[in-house]
Design a protein around this nucleic acid. Structure first.
Lengths: 348, 348
DNA sequence: CCATGAATTGTTAGCGCTCACAATGACCTC
DNA sequence: GAGGTCATTGTGAGCGCTAACAATTCATGG
């Protein structure tokens, strides 16, 4: 409550009040077994009375452990990064680590370098980078840093330990679902070229079509935003009646824009054109129509990311660069089947 | 790169290599003016060569400053909290502070208490709490902590310094806009009772109606989710033809659900019922129809929040509890006027 | 009753840095 | 050329904690 100029009590102060040595106080705080119950109680009482709290800096200095991890991220207002961030923090806290975040507007060599410096000044023991762009991964690879770094959200690119959802599989699920529903061809609105996820999803889409003996049609690109989806949707609407019956959109937000453009062009979803998204943001279920999409388990990504980082910090360096892939899941809703059921959770 | 067992170089090591005292190295690092250029260069060269980095714990111990702030938040995947979080981190970094975050699933006395303890163990100098629920604010007020705390996102409740958007004003803008458009009555789908923002928006709505001499109709409640909006929308649809022509929904996500329910009930927006939301999430512009809503400037909230906290940390305690209110802004789109213009940014 | 060892507590020495002050030397001024 | 000033550098003492070791107490058995 009061944060006065008065110096907060130290371990020595507590020791004096409790009539023991500072080391005994340290033992009590450290849950050391060899402390008499009566002594422990006396110390705890003094701690309580004085409102004593261990000084983390002194502790970190003596132990050479800050128990702090860093996270570098961008686009943290997007559902994916925000979810990953949340999962990372939760997992880290469960392990007793504090998480310091740096949120960047864009990931360049300069901003990443500054971010790592900033985190380093803050004494982090390791860093998780939510770096979905290849350029960011490359930039990261070229940077020196005195702690281990794990990349999350980008597939295996350069030689940095990573955890990510298997985007290629997700795209195969989405595309395969459309083919299985009888569509002859599936179009694709991809994300930005530089994004690893976008590339992986496009590759999965292409691979599925080719495996089915279908020539992949022209690929469209957006920037993840609903607006770019809207524009692409207007273009796509022009192909209706010329073989376009199904679109796999690389994320849900763009899919929202596509749905709107199609609707405005008088194209019905899913009767005329089926649409599949990617991410399963909470809103997808309430789009018009509810969106079939691919769900990514960010919670697992976060847990695995922290686990991997802690291993690198605490254990000995592994022989090969660890890469962890997590399976995504197809969620079928009304945007791919005509007259589909009500959205999940709505009693009818 | 290599994070070996070998002890990293200390200031003394650098001093030895550069042929100066450790204090001179400290001066160079601290940009102290009285160092000969030649000496400075020699020291910098040694630092570069050895890859030296100042030990933050030792520094923090000696200066009694960790230059770390804490943030406690919940629902960080929602647009509002995520934006606030981002703004806070950016503002703090601009001031040279590191931000440690704790993201909670819910804000109770227990979780908040643990979060503050965790941050305290990490040595934060102050904390910003993104605590939109009154219960959270109350819980916070009852907790002891050895550092100043600022609340962001909740209006003035108890006696804790706060920064927030003027929700009452936002609600007046929304409700007034509907009345000005000729609607006789405006219904309201409110957020959870416990949320300060929900209460303020409901109060602003009620005040505007009463000022216009209109009896406020029954108030509906949701939980911010599209699903709850959908359910409320079904109920609202039943009142169409019995005086319901306009709804002010307390956030955009619920508005999405309302729009869908109305559409499914054969009610047209805005011709039959006009809808206004709150938040201006990026998707709102692409709803069907694009949503009129109230925009909150989270960036300013973040800057002001950090500024206030730093003042409390660095300056002397203010005489009265500081409360900062930020003005929101009405964004008019197609959900309130029939045949409205295309969404912003879309050339047509 | 004293040796033996386990349990408990205390003592000392850093961890790596900054702060306050002391010391050095160059340069002026009268 | 003595005394004073200023810029530059060095010295010593902590900051508050933990780790390693030393010391003390206590129970136990031959």
């Amino acid at each position: 409550m009061t944060h006065s100029r008065f110096r907060p009590p130290t371990m020595a102060d507590v020791a004096r009040v409790a009539g023991v040595s500072h080391q005994t106080v340290s033992r009590v705080l450290g849950d050391h077994p060899n402390v008499r119950d009566e002594t422990r109680a006396r110390v705890l009482r003094a701690i309580e009375e004085m409102g004593y709290r261990r000084n983390s800096s002194a502790r970190a200095l003596a132990t050479r452990r800050t128990r702090t991890l860093g996270v570098v991220a961008s686009d943290t207002t997007l559902y994916g990064p925000a979810s990953t961030l949340f999962a990372l923090e939760e997992a880290a806290r469960a392990e007793g680590y504090l998480v310091s975040t740096v949120s960047l507007r864009e990931l360049t060599v300069e901003t990443l370098s500054e971010a790592l410096d900033h985190l380093s000044e803050g004494g982090v023991e390791g860093v998780v980078a939510i770096a979905p762009q290849r350029s960011a991964v490359d930039a990261l690879a070229g940077l020196r840093h005195p702690f281990p770094v794990v990349i999350v959200g980008s597939g295996p690119g350069v030689d940095i330990p990573s955890v990510s959802v298997d985007q290629h599989l997700g795209a195969r699920l989405a595309t395969g679902h459309l083919l299985a529903a009888g569509h002859r061809k599936v179009w694709h609105l991809a994300g930005p070229e530089d994004w690893q996820e976008a590339a992986d999803r496009a590759a999965g889409w292409r691979a599925t079509l080719e495996a089915a003996g279908v020539e992949p049609p022209m690929l469209l690109r957006g920037d993840w935003s609903p607006l770019s989806g809207y524009r692409a949707g207007q273009e796509l609407a022009g192909w209706v009646g010329r073989g376009l019956t199904a679109v796999f959109v690389a994320n849900d937000q763009m899919a929202l824009g596509v749905l709107r453009a199609l609707r405005e062009a008088g194209v019905r979803t899913p009767q005329d054109v089926a649409v599949v998204g990617f991410d399963d943001i909470p809103e997808s279920e309430f789009f018009a129509p509810p969106l079939t999409t691919v769900r990514q388990d960010f919670s697992t990504v976060g847990k695995q990311g922290i686990a991997l980082l802690l291993e690198l910090i605490e254990g000995r360096p592994p022989a090969t660069t660890p890469r962890i892939a997590i399976e995504p899941q197809l969620v079928v809703r009304a945007s791919t089947f005509p007259y589909a059921a009500q959205p999940e959770g709505v009693p009818l």
